[in-house]
Nucleic acid binder design. Sequence first.
DNA 1: CGTCAGGTAGCCA
DNA 2: TGGCTACCTGAC
Length: 266
Amino acid sequence: MHLRVNEFNLQHTLESGQFFRYYLKDGFYYVISGNNFFKIRQQGKNLEFLGTKRKFVQQFLGLNHDFETVKKQFSKDKYLNTAMKQYSGLRIMKQNQWETLISFICSSASNIPKITKNVNLLAENFGKKINFENETAFAMPMIGEMNDLAKIKNCKVGFRAKYLFEANRIPTDFFDIIKNLNYTDAVSQLTTLNGVGEKIADCVLLFGCNRLEAFPVDVWIKRVVQELYFDNKETNNKEIKKFGQEKFGKNAGYANQYLYHWRRNQ
DNA sequence: CGTCAGGTAGCCA
DNA sequence: TGGCTACCTGAC
């Protein structure tokens, strides 16, 4: 199956650290999300995929976002304008919410290779086996399926094990409730979970819930925002976030991603 | 060996 | 509120 795309780059999107469950083989990305196990590649404006539905791909990869508006809005800012050119086509994904929560609970004081290892181990230990072509993968466990603390610890998640174990007890409609809350209340709701602070809550809202106004502040965002917009003045995370959301508004999350990658790869 | 990494909770002023 | 520090694990 095919999709025509504009202002989209599959590699920049999948490899941006929003999402951890993909691998490259024979020129295709093999992707696991929910019960979907599919392959996909991009050739110019053509997106070719097999194993899932067109509608899923469109939503999952943020292809339904109004990117022209984002581009127009950000081109007025000289830093964002540069960052956006360098990482052109990077979209905010709309992943499975619960899987996003698990992934970003694993992310605290960690790094991408380790987070990837952790989520893959969780899937192998608790998830359902899925086959596609001659490939085998494991889906992430669903809510309630990680009911074994010792086994979670075997997934090398360290001090995050108890957080995952507790998160596993959220009601199955947890994210339906989140969906109907305004941004501030959604953050509050997420941060009631142990191991989920402001930053992880923002990542879940941004990458899993399509809340593009979220502005996760990690060490890199703090660094880049201070350097570019605060004349290198030491500024706390709360102020950084307030600045990001007021300056970039409903697309703050997009600004966040571009600035993040720009600074990290400097 | 020590330090540090996509943070957060707990404790104390 | 603001400023510590410990926390699993793995990579320098």
